[in-house]
Amino acid sequence: MRAMVICAAALLATGCAGARSGIEMPTSKYPVSLSNGMYGPNREMLRPDQMEKVGELAIDRTAWGLLYSLVPLTPTLDVSDEINEQLAAAHADGVIRFRTNVKPCGLDYAFVLTFIPFWPGCANVEVRGDMIRFHAAAPPPPQEPPPPQPQAQR
């Protein structure tokens, strides 16, 4: 009996808080890649020397949730506007190495209050990436003009 009471008390004294969200960019005007690779204008895979890093994409947002993170209050985080603005300012053509960091915010550490199901949880979401400028492949060296053909004399 005593063990059951202890177990019940332990279960009731359980707190959890957090948040989840989907990062999307439905109106982005620029291509974004999660890897080192990028497609060029003719859908060819670009070589590293065709991509010049001109800055780092940096977007910081907060996701909110309820009921121990089961109910997202921010189901999606649309980062289209930030991507369009930052790439336009940097005169970049795309983003490679797109990555995210997520960490609980301060509210999640309020241990006694997180026992309450409707205590709001949150997560700090950092979106990072390398903004790149595309350089077309260097054109092949000009060929020397063919030697003049001797003209037939009449």
Binding site: E24, M25, P26, T27, S28, K29, Y30, P31, V32, S33, L34, S35, N36, G37, M38, Y39, G40, P41, R43, M45, L46, S80, D93, G94, I96, R97, F98, R99, F134
Partner: peptide, 17 residues
């Protein structure tokens, strides 16, 4: 970042331009 040189695109635009 994904450890590959194969482009892994996210979003509506899939190539430069």
């Amino acid at each position: 970042p994904l450890a590959t040189n194969v482009p892994v695109m996210v979003g509506p635009v899939t190539r430069i331009g």
